[in-house]
């Protein structure tokens, strides 16, 4: 047996290399979000024209320097309409998310924490609702209450809630069965204190990321409803309504549908990207 402890033949030099990936995706998402928030707060600053001003002489103009996104059939500036429509679209998205998460929290918490029979019943209800496609559920509700901005918010909120309810139930259950809750029980803490200090905060924390994701998705769903004529009606510049209005001119003026579509996609991607980053940074804290 020979065993040497020689001086290394080729001493590995201490290296340092920067291989941190620049989060340019996050930067772009934040920039997009900043634009939308500005459009929400002060559309008059960003808009170049009056979104409702008719100019029939310049109807259906292609995008140009004068009209960045082109003009619609009545000569209204599409860019300005998109900017002014941000408020409606975002508020519908945020409102729907608020409705959705509120319903989800209530149902999810009952399904996780209530007694056997109540929890079982609520759980079945969530599962039955979950079995419906989101849009179908939303359509059903709008049909019942009639198309309006309010029904759009409500329908999308209810339509997306079963998925979140299931998620919240899972979060609460895993927190409830965790080692730290058992440790707190062993310390003699009361049930209420454990719920307040451990179960609820740990169940809700992952929702921060979900909120961002959900706003983006809700806008897509709300736009779908508006596109089908079941939301805010034209001439409102809400993005789904813009899509719906442009539909008639899709062969002559495709920008009228393509550009609002791209705007919706941009917002959805920006919200999703930010949501994912929030999620990743939360998980990093846990591992």
């Amino acid at each position: 047996m020979t065993l040497q402890q020689k001086v290394p033949v080729t001493p590995p030099a201490a290296r340092s290399r920067k291989n941190v990936v620049a989060p340019w995706g996050l930067g772009a998402a934040l920039a997009a979000l900043l634009f939308f928030v500005a459009a929400l707060v002060a559309p008059q600053v960003l808009a170049t024209h009056d979104p409702y001003a008719l100019d029939l002489a310049n109807a259906l103009q292609a995008p140009s320097l004068a009209h960045w996104f082109g003009t619609d059939e009545s000569g209204r500036d599409l860019y300005s309409r998109v900017v002014w429509g941000t408020r409606d679209s975002l508020l519908i998205g945020i409102g729907a998310t608020a409705v959705s998460l509120t319903i989800a929290l209530i149902l999810g918490a009952i399904a996780a924490l209530a007694g056997k029979y109540v929890a079982g019943t609520v759980n079945r209800v969530i599962e039955v609702l979950f079995a419906f496609p989101t849009l179908l559920l939303a359509l059903l509700l709008v049909t019942v209450i009639g198309p309006s901005a309010f029904s759009q918010v409500f329908a999308v909120g209810v339509g997306t809630s079963p998925g979140y309810a299931r998620m919240i139930r899972g979060q609460i259950l895993s927190a409830k069965n965790s080692g730290y809750v058992e440790a707190a029980t062993a310390l003699g803490h009361s049930r209420g204190r454990i719920l307040r200090h451990h179960v609820i905060p740990n169940a809700i924390r992952p929702l921060v990321a979900v909120i961002a994701l959900s706003v983006g998705q809700s806008i897509v769903w709300a736009s779908s409803l508006a596109f089908l004529g079941l939301g805010v009606a034209p001439p409102s510049p809400e993005w789904g309504a813009l899509l719906d209005a442009g539909r008639l001119y899709i062969t002559q003026a495709p920008w009228l549908t393509v550009i609002p579509g791209l705007v919706i996609v941009t917002l959805a991607i920006a919200a999703t990207t930010i949501g994912k980053h929030i999620q990743a940074s939360l998980e990093k804290g846990e591992k």
Binding site: A183, H189, N202
Partner: peptide, 22 residues
């Protein structure tokens, strides 16, 4: 039992899961 729990404590194999990660 809750007040009496102060008289008996526990230490687990995996302390990490017994601490609230927040």
């Amino acid at each position: 039992r809750r007040p009496l729990r102060k008289r008996i404590s526990v230490v687990y194999q995996d302390p990490l899961s017994s601490f609230d990660p927040r």
